[in-house]
C-alpha cells in the first residue's frame, strides 16, 4: 500500500463539544445537540441527532486536517444508524394513522448523514454509509484506507451511534438492559501528509487474537454506555496518535481476528 497519513481527529458527544474539550476533561452539560455546521439548517429539518453528530464529527475532523469539505470522500459508519427516526415512523404505522412524513422517511435511511453532508457541501465525490455492529469503526477505517490507497486524496471516517430509544432500548442481548450513550468520532486519512500530519500508517495487519479494550486515560471520561458505543473503539487509536506512539494499534476490541494499524512517526 502507498504511505498514508492521519491528518485530523475529532470527537463530539453530549457534554463534550470537541476532542480538545474531551481530553482536557472540560465537560459541559449544556452541550446537548451537535451544531453540524456544514449542513444548512433548512436541510436538517426532520433529521435525527445522530445525523447531526455524523456531520459534526466529520466537519471537525476535516477542519482540523485543513482539507476541503467539498472534495473529501466521506465514510459514515454506525451500528444502529437512524434508529430514532425509525421508531418515530413505526409509531405512526402501528399506533397512528399510517401516513408517514416524506421528510422523516427520507431521513430514516442509514445514509441520511451521507446524503445531507454531500448536499450541504455540494460534494459530488465518494460517499458511503456502513454498518458492522461493534466493529463499525474498524469497517470505516478499512474502507477509507482502501479508498485513499486506490485513488489518493482525503477521506474522513465519521463513526457514530446515539442512544437507543424506547421501546427497543431494553431488548438487546437477550433482554438485558444495556444503555448506550451517544458518541461520535471523526478521523481524516490523506495521501498527502500536508504540513502537520498526526501519524503515518505504514501497514494494515490482521491480528491472530482478540484484544480486550485497553484501559486508557480516556476511560475515566466515559460512561459504561459510551463503552458499548462502537465509536469508543477509536479511542485507543486516538490516544496512540495524540501521544505520538509508534507500533500496532487494533481497530476493534473483544472481536475475533481484528485488523490493526502499524503507526510510524512522520
Amino acid at each position: 500500500m502507498r504511505p498514508l497519513y492521519v491528518t485530523g481527529l475529532s470527537l463530539w458527544a453530549p457534554g463534550w463539544a470537541s476532542l480538545d474539550a474531551f481530553v482536557s476533561g472540560a465537560h459541559d452539560a449544556s452541550v446537548e445537540d451537535a451544531p453540524c455546521t456544514w449542513v444548512p439548517s433548512r436541510l436538517l429539518r426532520g433529521s435525527s441527532r445522530l445525523t447531526r453528530m455524523f456531520g459534526e464529527a466529520a466537519a471537525q475532523a476535516v477542519t482540523a486536517a485543513g482539507r476541503d469539505p467539498k472534495t473529501v470522500a466521506t465514510i459514515y459508519t454506525s451500528s444502529y444508524g437512524e434508529i430514532e427516526t425509525m421508531v418515530l415512523l413505526l409509531d405512526v404505522i402501528f399506533r397512528g394513522d399510517g401516513q408517514l412524513s416524506p421528510m422523516r422517511f427520507k431521513n430514516s435511511v442509514h445514509n441520511a448523514g451521507s446524503g445531507l453532508g454531500s448536499i450541504g457541501q455540494g460534494n459530488t465525490s465518494f460517499s458511503t454509509a456502513l454498518a458492522a455492529g461493534a466493529r463499525s469503526f474498524e469497517a470505516g477505517m478499512l474502507e477509507a484506507i482502501a479508498l485513499v490507497n486506490e485513488r489518493g486524496g482525503d477521506a474522513v471516517v465519521s463513526c457514530a451511534d446515539d442512544a437507543i430509544p424506547a421501546p427497543l432500548s431494553h431488548v438487546e442481548n437477550g433482554g438485558r438492559l444495556e444503555r448506550r450513550d451517544g458518541l461520535s468520532v471523526g478521523l481524516v486519512i490523506s495521501a498527502d501528509p500536508g504540513s502537520t500530519p498526526l501519524a503515518r500508517i505504514a501497514k494494515v495487519t490482521q491480528l491472530e487474537q482478540a484484544m480486550p479494550l485497553p484501559e486508557r486515560a480516556f476511560d475515566r471520561l466515559l460512561s459504561p454506555g459510551h463503552h458499548l458505543n462502537p465509536a469508543a473503539h477509536a479511542l485507543p487509536l486516538f490516544e496512540a496518535i495524540r501521544s505520538g506512539r509508534e507500533g500496532t494499534v487494533a481497530l476493534a476490541f473483544d472481536a475475533a481476528a481484528p485488523y490493526a494499524l502499524e503507526l510510524t512517526r512522520v
Partner: peptide, 21 residues
C-alpha cells in the same frame, strides 16, 4: 404501547435488527 406494552421476549435488537446481523 407506552402504557406497559411488551416487546416479545424472543426479539433481539442486535441479532435481528442490526444491519450487520
Amino acid at each position: 404501547g407506552p402504557d406497559g406494552g411488551r416487546v416479545p421476549s424472543g426479539y433481539d435488537l442486535r441479532t435481528q435488527h442490526d444491519f450487520n446481523a
